[in-house]
């Protein structure tokens, strides 16, 4: 069940983004959360129409997932928020891109055992999770490319 988040609930997410990634922007958008920790963002223009009786399948773009390890950005979430991150962001080599987009973990040591933004130059590639000398890959199967 999708729920449009209140101001306080939205601030909670932004605070988590700030404490972990150092992201201090406050986007003027509506946050929507599913019961499973998935968060979408959609323009405030949604308030201009009465959506109460519409059968809504999806709001805007899925940007992040929340669990006990913190905030994990989707590819699109990392593209929207990644430029504002000051920490917990790792620059990967070109040779690692191929592994990453095929869904494999990366042999990279990180200082955190929480989520970390993955980027290569100007390209943001979503989030992984630091774990014992590797970055675990969370790319959904539907987005993986088996052969570049």
């Amino acid at each position: 069940m999708n729920k449009i988040l209140s101001g306080k609930e939205k601030r909670d997410i932004l605070s988590e983004m700030n404490s972990h990634y150092g992201i201090d922007i406050v986007p003027d958008v509506v946050f929507v959360e599913s019961g499973k920790g998935k968060v979408w963002i959609v323009n405030k223009s949604i308030n201009k129409i009465d959506i109460s009786n519409l059968n809504i399948e999806r709001f805007g773009t899925y940007v992040l997932f929340r669990d006990k390890y913190g905030v994990r950005f989707t590819i699109e979430g990392s593209q929207i928020f990644g430029n504002y991150a000051k920490r917990n962001i790792v620059e990967i080599q070109k040779t690692d891109i191929d592994k990453w987009i095929r869904g494999f973990d990366l042999d990279i040591e990180t200082e955190t055992n929480k989520y970390i933004i993955i980027k290569h130059k100007d390209d943001f590639l979503g989030c992984g999770k630091g774990a014992k000398g590797i970055i675990q890959n969370y790319l959904p199967k539907s987005r993986r490319i088996m052969k570049l």
Binding site: V29, I41, V42, N43, S45, I46, I49, D50, I51, N53, L54, N55, I56, E57, R58, F59, G60, T61, Y62, T74, E76, Q79, I80, S142, R143
Partner: peptide, 28 residues
């Protein structure tokens, strides 16, 4: 469509499943 539009990264849309008449009926 949902998969396609996720990749686009558009935040100015919602996806609905209604018959075509639903919007006028609801005064939108």
């Amino acid at each position: 469509m949902s998969t396609n539009l996720q990749r686009i990264g558009a935040i100015n849309l919602i996806i609905t499943r209604n018959d075509g008449m639903a919007f006028h009926r609801r005064g939108i």
